[in-house]
């Protein structure tokens, strides 16, 4: 969806402000919110694309005025509410009032190291040959799906060159099609496509700028 999370090329936010000796967390609640997001994700009731979709579906004004861990927390609450894992009343009170939903998996302390060290690889085998090869000229399609997508607005309609072919990966736009397992993990070919600065930003662009995105095949069409 075309919302404010898709920030590439927006103007007016001011300079980047690095913080000297930045702490890992700025408050204890940030650490707990991160850990709960990771732990609840391991329950398998949603996937990474559904959690990204929940965050980017926040009202634009809320997204822009929230800190990053606040966005994560709001996204987590939304994911649990939608699946009936918690109720709004329970979230308000902080106490369980309904029978817990049965979860196939709960992340135990002694399983954390292995879970983090394994992660969730997104490669899946496919019998379909790649449509594009290194050096091919491709155009990012002019798509505006109402749901989750990973094709940023600033490349849509623009022509670039295939620089890498990464194999076949779970396709995010389809990965969100079913809100609960089993998820559709049918993969698509994934490419790194590099664009010249002037192609994206016009004649006043930095002449020595190149920008790439990683784009799944359904985002691309052949260009001459």
């Amino acid at each position: 969806m075309n919302s404010v999370h898709d920030m590439g090329g927006m103007q007016g936010f001011g300079p980047v402000q690095p913080e000297t000796d930045e702490p890992l967390f700025h408050a204890q609640w940030e650490a707990r919110a991160l850990a709960m997001t990771v732990a609840m994700g391991a329950c398998g009731q949603w996937n990474i694309d559904l959690s990204r979709s929940a965050r980017e579906s926040l009202p634009p004004a809320v997204y822009l005025s929230s800190s990053y861990y606040e966005i994560w927390l709001r996204g987590l609450e939304q994911l649990m509410l939608e699946r009936g894992l918690v109720s709004a009343d329970e979230l308000r009170s902080g106490h369980s009032r309904q029978t817990p939903a049965p979860l196939a998996r709960v992340l135990a302390a002694d399983a954390v190291d292995a879970a983090l060290a394994t992660g969730s690889p997104t490669t899946r085998p496919s019998g379909t040959p790649a449509r594009f090869a290194l050096g091919d000229r491709v155009r990012a399609r002019n798509l505006h799906p109402p749901g989750h997508t990973r094709l940023p607005r600033y490349v849509r309609g623009h022509t670039g060159t295939v620089q890498s072919v990464h194999g076949t990966h779970i396709f995010p736009d389809r990965h969100v099609s079913h809100p609960v397992p089993p998820f559709d993990q049918t993969p698509e070919w994934l490419y790194t496509v590099v664009f010249d600065g002037a192609e994206l930003w016009g004649p006043d662009a930095d002449p020595a700028l190149q920008v790439s995105v990683d784009a799944w095949e359904p985002y691309l069409e052949a260009a001459s």
Partner: peptide, 12 residues
Amino acid sequence: KGYVDPAALDRI
């Protein structure tokens, strides 16, 4: 609810 183990959160 039994959805998270606080010790697992500590470990993360």
